[in-house]
């Protein structure tokens, strides 16, 4: 069976990531001199509490190649096919670390590293399709083909109440045009070709949620959907409820935005990711 490795950016709920066959490599967070592994040493709640205290500004770093290499070697004991799906290489050095790690492996095993070109739950849904293909008995080449197809079909929109965190993290990309507004606006962003792009701006949180809702409603057919929030489960629930006519609520993956992403978005991020046809 193909073993799947992904990074903690994919924000998949733990009931999925704890399944056999999926290994999550954590990114790292530094609060001053304190070092944490995303989702392991630092829970999402604890992170946002500390972030909002604002005493130390957290920074993030990609996993080291050796972290990946250790995972490869460990999994290679039981499999000879490993698929690694990472956050967009434009946003993090994680992809590079995963590739370099191939050269550091001690065991022999075929490893394919795929740059998802996405992040957060959009990346997560790509992992979901890969895991489903593996369960259906696909071999590594077949799973890679499924993943490539998902990369092209997935889409996502995210809103939050300020772009300041994204700007501070240096990842604002083309969405920088949304910066600097004298009025309060809720920016809406997406990812295109691996980097962050502006998708719109709304005057209120309620309108931003309308935007996410309309975005999903514009699809004629939806195969997978994920809704994620960091500290606003009420908004996520409202969105899921409003979309239930379009897509069964119980099939929506409900995700929590990981601290590493939270470092770049702030606590009020709300994300809708889906795979489907317009």
């Amino acid at each position: 069976m193909v073993e799947i490795i992904t990074d903690s950016i994919c924000d998949l709920p733990s009931q999925l990531t704890e399944q056999p066959g999926i290994t999550v490599i954590p990114l790292n967070i530094l609060f001053g001199k304190e070092f944490y592994r995303d989702g392991i040493d630092l829970t999402t709640e604890e992170f946002y509490r500390r972030q909002s205290e604002g005493v130390v500004i957290p920074v993030t770093s990609a996993p080291t190649p050796s972290t990946f290499a250790e995972a490869y070697d460990r999994l290679a004991e039981a499999t000879d096919e490993i698929l690694v799906i990472t956050i967009s290489s434009e946003l993090s050095a994680t992809y590079k670390a995963a590739v370099v790690a191939i050269g550091l492996m001690k065991k022999r095993c075929r490893v394919e590293v795929v740059d998802s070109r996405w992040a957060i739950s959009a990346e997560g849904l790509i992992v979901v399709t890969a895991a489903k293909a593996v369960r259906a008995g696909a071999n590594l080449d077949e799973v890679v083909a499924v993943v490539q197809r998902s990369i092209r079909r997935v889409d996502m929109r995210a809103t939050f109440d300020t772009l300041e965190y994204l700007k501070r993290g240096g990842r604002i990309g083309a969405a920088s045009v949304l910066l600097g507004s004298v009025l309060n606006v809720n920016p809406i962003i997406t990812i295109r070709n691996g980097i962050i792009h502006p998708a719109g701006r709304e005057r209120s949180r309620a309108k931003a949620i309308d935007y996410l809702c309309n975005f999903a409603m514009s699809y004629s057919h939806i195969e997978e959907m994920a809704i994620e929030d960091a500290t606003t489960p009420g908004d996520a629930e409202e969105l899921a409820e409003r979309l239930s006519a379009k897509f069964p609520k119980e099939r929506i993956y409900r995700c929590k935005t990981s601290p590493v992403i939270g470092t770049n978005t702030g606590p009020h991020v709300l994300v809708l990711s889906l795979i489907g046809d317009r």
Partner: peptide, 21 residues
């Protein structure tokens, strides 16, 4: 690319690996 790298590691140490789809 995995197969290529496997062959390479048998000859010496491998550096500056880049794999692009």
């Amino acid at each position: 690319p995995g197969g290529v790298l496997h062959m390479a590691t048998s000859l010496g140490t491998v550096h500056h690996v880049s794999i692009q789809n």
